[in-house]
Design a protein around this nucleic acid. Structure first.
Lengths: 207, 207
DNA sequence: GGTCGCACTAAGCGCTCGCTCACCTTCGGC
DNA sequence: GCCGAAGGTGAGCGAGCGCTTAGTGCGACC
C-alpha cells in the first residue's frame, strides 16, 4: 500500500507539476527552509541561496514570499485530500477503509514530514483570503474521515459516542505526527502508519 | 476535578510566582503575542505595548526576547509535568489514573490554550541550551504517562501492543488540542477532557 | 528636605529584512 | 546578423527589527 512516490526521499514528491524548473527549485527550497525554521524566521535570501540563485530571482517567479507559502500549502492540502479521498472511496468495509485512510495519511505525514510540517503548522502565516481557501480544503478532509466513521456506525461495525469529536481526534492524532516524527528515530513511516491504524480502530470501538 | 485555577479566564493562571508586577505583565503580554503571531513574528515593541510600557522597559526585566520565551516555556512545562505527576501518583487503578491524567492534561491544553500553544509549539525558537533543558522536562512527562500504561499492562487492565508508541500517541493526541481548540467552538475544556479520557482508555485496550 | 537608587522613557544605533530596478546574457525567428 | 522576449544578476532602497544609552520622575531613607 505504500508507494515509492510517497516515501522516496520523503520530499521529492508532488512538486513535479510545478514549472518551469527554476520555479520548482525555489519552491522546494522554500519548503525545506520553512520546515526547518518556520515561515517568519526564513529569509528570501535563504530560499534563493538554497536554490542556487540570487535573491532577486525569487521575484521573477513569485510575487511575494507569502505567495510561495500559499502555493506550497494548496498543493500539500490537495495531496492530503487526495490520499484521504482515495482511501475513503475504495471498496470494502468501514474498518478496512478507515485503517487504509489512517495508515496512508500517517505515512504521508511521517515520510514527507518536511512538507507536512509546513502544510499543517504554517497556516496562520497566510493572509485572510489564502487561509480561507485552505480551510475549505481542510473541511473536505474532515468530511471524508467523518463519512467513513458514520458508515461504520450505521453498519454496526463501530461503537462511537461522539462522531464529530472522534473524527476531530483521529485527524488531530494523524496530523501531529508531522510535529514529532523524526527520520532518524526508531520507527519507519510504515510502522507508525500500522500502529496508528490499530489505535484508531480501537478509538472507534471496532469489534 | 476541574479547578477554578485551571480554567478561570483560561490564562490568568500560574504566573503569580513571577515578580515584580511589571515583569509579570510583560510575561503575560509576551504569552498572548507569541500565541497569536508566533515568536518570530512578534516584536519587542508589541510585547511592551500590550503591557503598557515603552520598548526599552522590557530590557530592565529580561536580557533578551529569547529569555522571555525561555521563562514562559519552563514555567509552562513545569505546570504540565505537575499536572501529569499529580494524576499519575494518585491512589487508584491504572484506568482511573490514566483517565484522570488525560482529562486534566487536556483541560489544561484547552482552557489555557494561549499558554499551551507557546509551550508546545515555539520550542524550536529557543537556543540549543534552553531547548535541551526543556526537552528534559518533556521526557519526564513522557515517563509519567508511560508508567501508568505499564502499570495497567502489568495488572492486566490494559491490552497494548507497543507501550512506547502508544505512550507517544496518547501525549501527541493531548498536545495537539492546543492547536485546534477554540474557546468559541462547540466544546468546553471539560467536555473535551472527558471525551479524550474515553478515547485514550479505548486506545490502551481498557477492559 | 536633600539625595540616592531604581524603574522607566525618548531617541536612536547598527543591522537585516522584503522587495525593486537598471542592466546583462542567452536564444529562437526572420 | 540583428532583435525582442525571457530569465537572470548586483546593488541598494525604505522600513522595521532587537537592543542600548543618556536622561527623567519619584518614593524611601537619613
Amino acid at each position: 500500500m505504500s508507494t515509492a512516490e510517497e516515501t522516496a526521499g520523503g520530499e521529492a514528491q508532488a512538486w513535479g507539476e510545478v514549472t518551469p524548473d527554476a520555479a520548482r527549485r525555489l519552491l522546494v527550497a522554500a519548503v525545506e527552509a520553512f520546515a526547518e525554521r518556520g515561515y517568519h524566521a526564513t529569509t528570501t535570501r535563504d530560499i534563493a541561496g538554497r536554490a542556487g540563485m540570487s535573491p532577486a530571482a525569487l521575484y521573477i517567479h513569485y510575487k511575494t514570499k507569502e505567495e510561495l507559502l500559499h502555493r506550497i500549502s494548496r498543493i500539500g492540502h490537495e495531496k492530503a485530500l487526495e490520499i484521504l479521498r482515495t482511501a475513503a472511496r475504495r471498496e470494502g468495509t468501514a474498518r478496512e477503509r478507515l485503517a487504509g485512510a489512517v495508515s496512508s495519511f500517517v505515512r504521508w505525514h511521517a515520510g514527507g514530514r518536511t512538507t507536512a510540517r509546513v502544510v499543517q503548522y504554517e497556516l496562520d502565516s497566510l493572509g485572510p483570503d489564502a487561509r480561507a481557501e485552505i480551510l475549505a480544503l481542510r473541511r473536505q478532509c474532515d468530511a471524508e474521515v467523518r463519512a467513513i466513521i458514520e458508515d461504520g456506525v450505521a453498519a454496526g461495525e463501530f461503537d462511537v459516542l461522539d462522531v464529530k469529536g472522534t473524527t476531530l481526534a483521529v485527524l488531530s492524532l494523524c496530523i501531529d505526527v508531522a510535529r514529532w516524527f523524526n527520520v532518524d528515530g526508531p520507527w519507519t513511516p510504515d510502522e507508525v502508519g500500522a500502529l496508528y491504524a490499530d489505535l484508531v480502530l480501537r478509538m472507534v470501538g471496532d469489534k
